Deep mutational scan, measured.
Amino acid sequence: MAAAAAAGAGPEMVRGQVFDVGPRYTNLSYIGEGAYGMVCSAYDNVNKVRVAIKKISPFEHQTYCQRTLREIKILLRFRHENIIGINDIIRAPTIEQMKDVYIVQDLMETDLYKLLKTQHLSNDHICYFLYQILRGLKYIHSANVLHRDLKPSNLLLNTTCDLKICDFGLARVADPDHDHTGFLTEYVATRWYRAPEIMLNSKGYTKSIDIWSVGCILAEMLSNRPIFPGKHYLDQLNHILGILGSPSQEDLNCIINLKARNYLLSLPHKNKVPWNRLFPNADSKALDLLDKMLTFNPHKRIEVEQALAHPYLEQYYDPSDEPIAEAPFKFDMELDDLPKEKLKELIFEETARFQPGYRS
């Protein structure tokens, strides 16, 4: 834990890192770190609560700039109880001085990944967590956004079992017609939660990839272990087919990539493993919904509104309290091709509203 900075004593240090967030945020305490930044909790002297502050230093890398800009653009436009918001952003007053960006968010005690390492969940908890994931996802999908990296560590939890989806750095506007060349190379989302079509096709992607990830998360809540822990690309596919069985001819016809289709045709026939054999203690309604989410063919996979209306979630289902976005989200430009200098300018502009004396 960093010592509390005395008023006016300059930035606090946390594990050798400068955290320049005073005077409003003090009493910093280390939480963890990701690929390009550290997260601390801090005391907000204005709202009198502890908050989470993520320090991001992305400006050396085009990919990190892209992810940072995506996350900020999306989260500043989203407003939903099951999606983490941005409360404040701290950065230098000029673009030349801006080396880091500090993002202030609600402090959540833990995440689903940490929880599943230590606790076996009751059916009631599984049901409530799944409902909140789908409630947040309904809003995301209504904005025409794909999260693309749903996994237990991106689901934040607090002691009252509130759940918030975080990390929109890989999110995209849904565009089933656009052929994202190089899709697989830039697709760094965790393999275990990846839909089979991501490994088999490169053309376009749809909201059904997020539903697949939610199915993987439900299976993990039922058993405290990942359902498809593939060691590499082909191993991942083999794990999936080992449980779902061989795809039907109709399902194979959806695979545009001939090499991928021929690979699947070359494999020995596998039978589907019954879900109640894998999860003998699970609620039968939970397994019915799991089956509809972990469907090989993305066109037959359940959609988020149908999933919310499934009998497993009937005690929570309330369409009048499951809000959607006001308007579909649009990125003005494809960020993939922009140089990091341009992305830095866009991050600077996007964060201006939090600067003292800002006038829109």
Rank of each mutant, 00 (worst) to 15 (best):
Y128Q: 10
H80L: 15
S248M: 08
Y128G: 07
M293N: 03
C40W: 00
T68I: 02
Y193A: 12
L244V: 00
D337V: 13
K151I: 02
D283P: 01
R91W: 01
I243S: 13
K138G: 12
R77L: 15
L234N: 11
G242N: 02
D337S: 02
A143V: 11
L252S: 05
R15M: 15
I347S: 14
F331H: 07
D210R: 09
V18H: 05
V51R: 01
G242M: 07
D167V: 15
N276V: 07
P356T: 10
T185D: 11
R67T: 01
F59D: 01
P339R: 12
P328H: 14
D149M: 07
R225M: 03
Q62K: 15
L289S: 09
T351P: 11
Y30T: 00
D321A: 15
P328Q: 05
H125Y: 12
K272W: 08
E303V: 13
E314S: 02
D88Y: 15
F348D: 11
M221V: 05
I217K: 07
S213T: 03
R70W: 03
E71L: 02
I302S: 05
P229Q: 03
W275I: 10
T185R: 12
H80A: 06
R15H: 09
L150D: 07
R15W: 15
F78Q: 13
R15S: 15
H310Q: 13
L130C: 05
W275G: 06
Y187V: 08
D88G: 03
L346A: 11
A52N: 01
G85A: 08
K203E: 14
K203V: 13
L237I: 06
L170Y: 07
P319H: 09
N281C: 07
R15N: 09
L343N: 10
Y25G: 06
N257L: 09
E96R: 03
P152F: 02
T94I: 10
R359D: 12
A92S: 14
P280A: 10
S360Y: 15
N123G: 10
L107S: 10
R135C: 13
K259F: 07
K207T: 13
T160W: 10
Y312T: 09
P226G: 04
T206L: 13
L146N: 04
L146R: 07
P176Q: 15
E60D: 15
K292A: 07
T159Y: 12
H180R: 06
V51C: 10
Q249W: 05
Y36S: 11
V21H: 12
V273K: 01
T185V: 08
N47G: 12
F296I: 15
K151H: 03
P58S: 12
R172T: 06
D20F: 11
G169Q: 07
A325M: 01
S202V: 13
A5E: 10
L289N: 04
S213A: 08
L294C: 10
Y139A: 10
Q315C: 00
S284D: 06
Q119G: 11
G85K: 08
G242R: 00
Y43Q: 03
D88N: 14
V21C: 12
M98T: 03
L75K: 00
S41H: 00
V21N: 09
F19I: 15
L157R: 06
R261G: 09
Y187L: 05
P280W: 11
H147Y: 12
G215W: 03
I89S: 02
R191V: 09
C161M: 08
S320A: 04
V39F: 11
E96W: 03
V145E: 15
L134F: 10
I74R: 09
Q249N: 02
P298G: 03
N224Q: 12
T110N: 13
H80P: 04
P356L: 06
L289C: 08
K330Q: 06
P226V: 06
D44A: 09
D167T: 05
S29N: 12
A195C: 06
K342T: 09
G215Y: 11
F348N: 07
M38R: 09
H80Q: 15
T351E: 12
F329C: 06
E334M: 03
P280I: 10
D111C: 08
N158H: 12
P323W: 00
L308A: 01
D332M: 10
V188C: 07
L28K: 03
K54W: 03
E326D: 15
Q236T: 08
I56G: 12
N297Y: 15
H180G: 09
